[in-house]
Structures are given as structure tokens and as C-alpha cells.
Design a binder for these strands. Structure first.
Lengths: 224, 224
DNA sequence: ACAACGGTTCGACGCCGCTCGAACCATCGA
DNA sequence: TCGATGGTTCGAGCGGCGTCGAACCGTTGT
């Protein structure tokens, strides 16, 4: 019964599914609010609040209060490294799910990630937007390019409303292992896709399936 | 609610104190039996067996059956790395215990580590035994030197009995952060210390306190 | 001042899983 | 073949923690 740092305490914090989901969501590096994390984790707000208190108390998260918003973020790169190490083991050790990433084929192509689009199509879209200099990536951040406002205004998306959350955010796509676009812009694009009926959400699933003409329209607007 | 490898599953395996102790004990790299791990974890044998099944099932441990013994060991360096990452966070994040290592001052000096001596005195002893070429360290292993048999025979310790467990084993001392001597030889030395009444065990504690003449005798025999 | 909204606290419920004693199984030595 | 020893399985007990609804608190905007 050797002595040492309280490794069980830290591990058990990560060991709850809800908290693990929150930590995963925070691995992008941007701080999120309690409500957002509650959605990510799939639990009610009180439950999320309780979990977040424990994570802060345990030293895994930092809390930044801004007005009536409280942003939670990873406490530091050491914590992120730990999560990554655990993820590596989980991935290596749990080959029970044969293919990596989401089970369903449709979900690998396109799915909802909280409020924006994820999957192969989303990753490709971000690539093209950056390629066309509409968006600009430096390091891990995504910013609006010079032609962004006019480009998105042309398809009915105002990039300057709702300053509450960051407009652009990179979100790591698990199935593709590369980033796709999150933030209010990502959300607006998903809204557009659904509003135009280019695609519909699969029942009781996060999968998003495009109709053939919808896919063409999507590609013309965002990939063209 | 992003998808991904089951990080919570892995973390919760480490998140139980008994299992964390077992994993810690296995960080030395040598495989241990179920009974040894039960002692390390401070739980009964059935409980330990249940935990070990879960760890094997979870892919964190490997099981090697040899006759009626079953040796459990870490599944690989990736798992060890994960434990180390968690330990790092736990250490960085839990500075609630002001001084590193065991709380009690006496325990930092000398304590029982399962069946052998640990603490500052134990670390110093191993240093001197290696310095005098009685034991030989290469890399992380410890072997008997040429004069070991005669040296230990002179003080009534037969290094060749009980071939079941390794005679020498390095055991990382948490309070000093360096190795001390474990294995059957380490156990025999502790037996000798207690049999000669050079020291006594503190009640309900792992601390070992030497009497003044006992300490002199110990230093003469092992440090001289 | 008042309503709306984000977030936390409280209380109660329910379940998962840790724990150990006792019985059982397997291997080794005589 | 029989006992001794190392390990596992079974069953039952029980504590802890995750969960949510309802109430409460603080900030913002009108």
C-alpha cells in the first residue's frame, strides 16, 4: 500500500461519463458555459453544475466569471495531456468497436455536433472555406477573412449578430480526426442547411442525410 | 455529446482506490500475484480478485498463469504512460498536502513497504550496498554481486532460499523519489531488523522506529 | 422596479459497485 | 490419494454518488 499523489481521486473525476463528455468537449481549448456543457454531456443543468463544481474543486477545470456567464475551461495543458493519454489507451484497448469513429456510416458522413455540422462533409467545407480565404486559420484559431461578411450575407447569414459566443470555433471531428467549423457561424450554416431542406435529421440520431439536390446545393454554395 | 473512445470506462477503472494502488504497485514493471496485490491495495483476496478481473477485462492488465500462481502485470508502456500522466496531474493539482511524501516524519525516515523497508534509510542502504559492490545495478535491475552470498551469510541471511519471487527488486520510494531494495532479500533484511529488535513497528502505522543502539547496529552492518 | 435568463443549491430517490465471508476449484507436494 | 495453498465465484449487505425537480440567487435589459 504505497503512498503517493491521489491518482484515484483524479481518475474518478474523469471516470464519470457525463464529466468525461464535458472534458472531451473542452479539449478544443475554448471555454464553454455550463448550459453548453450540460448539452454536451446530455444531462440536466443542475447535474452539470454539480459535476462542474467537482471538476473545478478537483483542479481539472478553471472558472472565469463574466457577467452572468460562467466559462469553464481546462486547467492547463497538463490536464489536456492526461486526457489525451487516457484517450489513447481507451482507443488502443477498446477495439471492440471495429471501425473507428461513429458506428453508423451516415453519421460518419454528416451529423449534428451540438448545434453545428460535423463529419466528412463538414471537414471538407471548412477546408474549402479556408482555401478560398473566406476564413483564416492561424494556429488553432479560426477567424473571418476579408470577404467573409459579403460572402455569407449573400446567402442570408449575418456573421455579426449574437456576439455572445465566438463566431468561429474549431471542433475536432472524431471520425475524421480533423477540425470542422463550430461557433455561431457553424450553427448558422447548419440552420441554413435544415431551413433550405437540403438535408433532414435522422430520427433519434445525430445523423444528417442530404437529399441529392440538397447535396448539390450545399456543394455549390460552400464547396464551389 | 461528442463520440469517441470510452475514456470514462478506462478512467473509472483507475478511479477506484484499491485498483489505483494495484496499478501503482505494478508501475515497478514486475508482475505480482493476486495475494501480493491484495496486500498492496489493502483489501481482501476476493475483492482483489474481482478488481483484477476488471482490470484485465478492461485491457489495463495482462495475466500470466504459471502453475498455481497467476501473475498480473501492466498491459504495456502506453498504460504506464497514462498512469504517469494521471500521477503528474494529481501531484500538480493536489498541493493540499504541503510536504511531498508520507505525512508523518517518522514514516519518511523508515517504514514498511509491504514486506521490506522503505524510506530514507532504505534508500541509503541500497546506495551503500551498490557502492560496496555487494549488489549490482544495471539499468533498472538489481542483481547479486560476487561477495553477496558470503556477506549476507555472515549476518544470517541466505540469499538462495525461496526462489519463488525475485531475490532483488527495485521499489520506487515515494518520499525520496529514488529506489530502495525489495524482493526476498529486502524482506529478509526487514525480518532481520525486527528480529534483532533494532527497531519496532509503530502501532497501526507503517512507520518503523529504530532504537539508538539499533540504529547503530543497522548502520554498522548495512552502511559500514 | 420588474421580468427574463443563466446558474447554483437543496432534498429526495434510486442504482451501481465496492466489500467481505463462505464455499468452491485448481494446482502442487507428500 | 489426501491435505495445503493460491485464486475465483457466489451471495448479501450497504454506502456513496449520480440524477433530476423545485426553489433560490445574481445579473442584464427594459
Amino acid at each position: 500500500m504505497r503512498e503517493g499523489p491521489d491518482i484515484a481521486r483524479i481518475a474518478s473525476l474523469v471516470g464519470d461519463p457525463a464529466r468525461a463528455n464535458m472534458l472531451n468537449a473542452l479539449m478544443g481549448g475554448t471555454a464553454l458555459t455550463a448550459s453548453e456543457l450540460a448539452l454536451e454531456a446530455g444531462v440536466s443543468l443542475p447535474t452539470a453544475s454539480s459535476h462542474l463544481s467537482k471538476l473545478v474543486e478537483g483542479g481539472l477545470l478553471t472558472l472565469a466569471s463574466q457577467g452572468r456567464h460562467r466559462y469553464y475551461g481546462l486547467a492547463g495543458p497538463q490536464v489536456a495531456g492526461m486526457i489525451e493519454a487516457i484517450t489513447g489507451v481507451a482507443e488502443a484497448v477498446g477495439p471492440k468497436r471495429v471501425r473507428p469513429g461513429p458506428r453508423d456510416g451516415a453519421m460518419r458522413i454528416a451529423r449534428v455536433c451540438y448545434d453545428h455540422l460535423a463529419g466528412e462533409q463538414a471537414v471538407e467545407m471548412l477546408d474549402r472555406l479556408v482555401e478560398k480565404n473566406i476564413l483564416v486559420r492561424d494556429d488553432k484559431e479560426i477567424r473571418l477573412g476579408p470577404s467573409a461578411a459579403s460572402h455569407f450575407a449573400a446567402i442570408g447569414i449575418d456573421v455579426y449578430t449574437k456576439p455572445r459566443r465566438p463566431v468561429c470555433r474549431a471542433c475536432l471531428d472524431w471520425s475524421v480526426r480533423r477540425s470542422h467549423l463550430a461557433g455561431t457561424l457553424g450553427a448558422a450554416i447548419l440552420d441554413k442547411i435544415l431551413a433550405e431542406k437540403w438535408a433532414r435529421r435522422e430520427k433519434d440520431s445525430r445523423a444528417v442525410v442530404f437529399s441529392p439536390p440538397g447535396k448539390q446545393a450545399f456543394e455549390r454554395v460552400f464547396l464551389g
